[in-house]
Nucleic acid binder design. Structure first.
Length: 426
RNA sequence: GGAGGAAUGGCAGAGUGGUUUAAUGCACCGGUCUUGAAAACCGACGUACCGAGAGGUACCGGGGGUUCGAAUCCCUCUUCCUCCGCCA
């Protein structure tokens, strides 16, 4: 959530940024927010004057009653009673204005960083780091991963349909082992890089989902457990970042680095078509997430560090990838800058997104009330996160790119995790 | 799921209607003393909002109520503890 202070002090930058996102009525929304905040201040000041008066008189009444001057006390009592109506109305008004302001602010997405390119959709994303050299070519008869999955017994979509519905793959045999191995590999690399491992809850409450920005913006994308009013997490970002909700840190605590493996649940409402076959888009998938809480002065250096870390993982897996810097139109609601990692799927002849690394600046920490003791008083921290990594498309790319007549060759780093060097047909 | 108890500052812990601007202790920070440290002593020591400032307001788990006035009384929710039941 954007700060009122930012809207007031940096209106030009905010409007220019929101224009990059194609927010049509940005100027009007910002003006309305400022007007509502003016109204809030005026009302609050008026209310507090009344309260101050009341407190003063109440004290006097106490003194009068104690010293036995009941008549004078009663007179003051009547006076305070007369103020009650005005106070009640004032408090009701303040409540309404605050709620209106809050609702308005919830509608405003984050302001993109200056370096974020303008653009309408994914076609306008900037290729930040192209794949160096020629993309690997596959023979004509190269198979997509959903065919390989059957041949190698990696996962079964039909079994998932029976137990749950479409989009819930069941990993089987060496496929399940591959998934587990990848999770362990990622966690080991992340913890070696200084991230502390957590196993967070997979269900979160409404406050938690709102603090990282999933609510109200993405309500329809999360599974909602209505019986207990909880949400299945769409990413470990939600519980991990919320571990520090309401925290007041010291500047020297930064950076705080967290990692965690969780299944992720996404309704993916409205998705369909040829590009969602196999593991390309599913409702439940495994992901290892990295999160950083940072001092505002160096959060972009840490974003670079995270990008380098994720790139290192893909290098180790031997997967060809490129890095995109998302344009304003493709940027997530809460993000100020996002890099997407895409691996090349040789058999499908297309790029698959496997990681998204973002700096949210103070957008989440404002909702989280995540602060640190700064040089100029308490200030909001910056939050960042990224996938390191999401499994399904990594598995798809590994299967497709490494298929040979002798089986699917596993990258060397995975050998100890799977206890074998290649996957065999079943 | 049932019964009972509890929730106060970083921590411990007083406070059951009005000088509570929350006692006291510990911790932390600054200072005096000391070659240095410890001890002792002195001082400072929460958060948010409004205000140019002086200052004001709110906050004792959350929400609501009673009252001129609520940490304190009432209702409600949440969480934790003890016991019982169930259970991977």
């Amino acid at each position: 959530m954007l700060l009122l202070q930012t809207l007031r002090d940096e209106k030009e930058r905010v409007l220019a940024g929101l224009a990059k996102r194609q927010v049509a009525d940005a100027a009007e929304l910002v003006e309305r927010a400022i007007a509502l905040d003016d109204q809030r201040k005026a009302q609050q000041t008026a209310n507090e004057q009344l309260l101050s008066e009341r407190n003063k008189l109440s004290k006097e009444i106490g003194g009068l009653m104690k010293s036995g001057r009941h008549e004078e006390g009663q007179a003051l009592r009547d006076k305070v009673n007369a103020m009650k109506e005005e106070l009640a109305v004032g408090e009701e008004t303040l409540k309404t204005v605050k709620a209106d302001l809050e609702n308005l602010l919830l509608q405003l997405p984050n302001v993109p960083h200056e370096l974020v390119p303008a653009g309408v959709n994914e076609e306008d994303n900037e290729v930040f780091q192209a794949y160096p050299g020629e993309l690997p070519q596959m023979p004509e008869d190269a198979k997509p991963h959903w065919e390989l999955a059957e041949e190698y017994g990696i996962f079964d979509l039909e079994l998932g349909v029976r137990t749950t519905g479409s989009g819930f793959p069941v990993f089987t045999g060496q496929g399940a082992r591959l998934a587990r191995g990848l999770v362990n590999f990622f966690l080991d690399r992340n913890t070696a890089a200084g991230y502390t491992e957590y196993q967070p809850p997979l269900l979160v409450n409404e406050d938690t989902a709102r603090a990282t920005g999933q609510l109200p913006d993405k309500e329809g994308q999360m599974y909602h457990v209505t019986g207990d009013d909880l949400y299945l997490i769409p990413t470990a970002e939600v519980p991990l970042t919320n571990l520090y909700r309401g925290a007041l840190l010291d500047a020297e605590d930064f950076p705080i680095k967290l990692t965690g493996y969780t299944p992720c649940f996404r309704r993916e409402a409205g998705s369909y078509g040829a590009h969602v076959r196999g593991l390309n888009r599913v409702h439940q998938f495994d992901k290892v997430e990295i999160v950083q809480l940072a001092h505002p002065d160096n959060s972009y250096a840490l974003l670079e560090e995270m990008v380098a870390h994720v790139g290192g993982l893909l290098d180790e897996l031997g997967l060809p990838f490129r890095i995109l810097r998302l344009c304003g139109g493709d940027l997530g609601f809460t993000s100020a800058m996002t890099f997407d990692f895409e691996v090349w799927s040789a058999a499908q002849q297309r790029w698959l997104e496997v990681s998204s690394v973002s700096n949210f600046e103070t957008f989440q920490s404002n909702r989280l009330k995540l602060r640190y003791r700064g040089e100029r008083g308490n200030d909001l921290a910056h939050t960042l996160n990224g996938s390191a990594l999401a499994l399904p498309r990594i598995i798809a790319a590994l299967l497709e790119n490494n298929q040979t007549a002798e089986g699917i060759i596993l990258p060397e780093v995975l050998h100890p995790y799977l206890g074998r060097t290649r996957l065999e047909r079943v």
